[in-house]
Nucleic acid binder design. Structure first.
Length: 424
RNA sequence: CGGGGAGUAGCUCAGUCUGGUAGAGUGUCUGCUUUGGGAGCAGAAAGUCGCAGGUUCGAAUCCUGUCUCCCCGACCA
């Protein structure tokens, strides 16, 4: 994409409401704009990042046989009255009355809707287990929204729901999701710490949060340092859960040899048995024709929060440093304006675009210094400068955002350069 | 919800104490000069001073009410 076409306006100073680095950088780089407290418009750059994260999550869900679907944002209150949560959920729930005086709500989560749907569509034990998910906007009327999209009221969440015939089956499913979550966060370039967690309003007896370590994180956690391991996925569920970790309300004060830190909760998984299937009268028939109440679990990932969490993990004083598979653009080509090289540059841009399909060309009429600053702020993994060095020596300067390393390559070499081999 | 703070130009802020009719930096626009690290010069546009009411000859400034936003704490992906 040519940056002259992009709705984008970098800010030198950060708006005063932004207190944490990810919020500041998201505002300065035109990723988001606040609409009202805890509610944001995703501008083109932020939206690209959001979609990239979403796709990595989607691939991982699909890998474990999860069905993607899309449930509505607005729900009827009826099912919530059946499950008992219409009163339990309290003021966090945004309630809406339609013109016929019907009570509706903006969904904060989807256990009721999915259980009702499953109950209608699945009648036989042969269909189990089934995993369903969607990626949809949620609304929770937080007491105090803060830190930009880190704690918004409206947020994008991937929520999956599993249905198993037995408690044992549900436990096996829980382990599958547990491991899939580790892989998802590692794919996103993050180091997840799974911690035993309280189950809160969702209910149930088994639950893990997935935390990303960050000093600005909202939750306190303690963990065995061995959990910080980029090969964590190689270990089994049992091996991992033997290592100690706990979120604040579960902390065992007598423990030693553990690290106390702060984290950003980016995922949460629950195993809650028949908590919803029972009140909503969801059942399937077993081979004896007897009614069996399925065991459920639910599995959330905060997609919009992850954009902020990733920035918290990858930034420096100059701006964001996106991992290459999340970056809004992989490569940004910078040139001088009014250059005689325009045709050459256009060629290089087209060649790289056909290879990587996600390249930007900064064709704005600005000084080269300004373009470099913007490229750093936005956090594009590779910046190519086609300027004096190219004119004089045929060299393109290639700068890697992660560490600032530079190499000078010819036009020929650029076409064969392995840009994908990149970790921040 | 309790405690604290703030609303003045797109952004950062001064002006409010002591009332006299709107300022700076940055960004934006135009022209010229520039072009390797947020360039220089000249010119321009841009704000019903959050909103409503009151006091006053006169209100960004004083008074009353109200709305919004932010920060600290208790809940959550």
């Amino acid at each position: 994409m040519k940056l002259s076409k992009l709705l984008f306006n970098s800010l030198k100073e950060s708006p005063k409401e932004a207190k944490i680095i990810s919020h500041q950088l998201m505002l300065r780089s035109s990723m988001i704009r606040q609409h009202t407290s805890g509610i944001y418009t995703w501008l083109p750059l932020g939206f690209k990042v959001l979609k990239n994260i979403e796709n990595i999550i989607r691939q991982n869900q699909d890998e474990i046989g999860c069905n993607e679907m899309l449930m509505s944002t607005i729900q009827s209150s009826e099912l919530w009255k059946k499950s008992g949560r219409y009163t339990d959920y309290g003021k966090e729930m945004l309630r809406i009355i339609d013109r016929h005086e019907n009570e509706l709500l903006y969904g904060p989560t989807n256990e009721e809707v999915i259980t009702d749907l499953f109950s209608d569509y699945v009648n036989s034990y042969k269909a189990l287990p089934k995993y369903l998910y969607h990626i949809q906007w949620k609304f929770r009327d937080e007491i105090r929204p803060r830190f930009g999209v880190m704690r918004g009221r409206e947020f994008l969440m991937k929520d999956a729901y599993s249905f198993d015939l037995t408690e044992e089956g549900a436990y096996e499913t829980y382990k599958i999701f547990f491991r899939s979550y580790l892989k998802t966060f590692l794919d996103l370039g993050l180091q997840p710490i799974p911690v035993k967690a309280a189950t809160g309003a969702i209910g149930g007896d088994l639950s893990h949060e997935f935390q990303i370590l960050a000093s600005t994180g909202e939750s306190e956690l303690t963990y065995d340092p061995k959990l910080v391991d980029s090969n964590l996925f190689e270990k089994s569920y049992e091996e991992i859960t033997l290592m100690y970790s706990a979120s604040d309300e579960m902390i065992d004060k007598s423990k030693s040899d553990v690290i106390v830190g702060r984290g950003i909760e980016v995922g949460h998984i629950f195993n809650f048995g028949t908590k919803y299937t029972k009140p909503l009268e969801c059942y399937v028939l077993n081979k004896d024709g007897k009614r069996i109440t399925p065991h459920m679990g639910s599995y959330g990932i905060g997609v919009s929060r992850l954009t902020a969490a990733i920035i918290e993990a990858f930034h420096d004083e100059k701006g964001i440093k996106w991992p290459i598979n999340i970056a809004p653009f992989k490569i940004n080509i910078i040139s001088q304006s009014n250059s005689e090289l325009n045709e050459e540059i256009e060629n290089i841009y087209n060649t790289l675009t056909s290879k990587y399909n996600n390249i930007s060309l900064d064709d704005r009429d600005l000084s080269i210094g300004r373009k470099i600053k913007d490229s750093e702020l936005i956090g594009i993994p590779w910046t190519l400068i086609i300027g004096n060095n190219y004119k004089e020596k045929g060299q393109i300067e290639v700068i890697r955002r992660s560490d600032g390393d530079k190499v000078f390559l010819s036009k020929q070499e650029i076409e064969n350069f392995e840009f994908e081999q990149y970790t921040p």
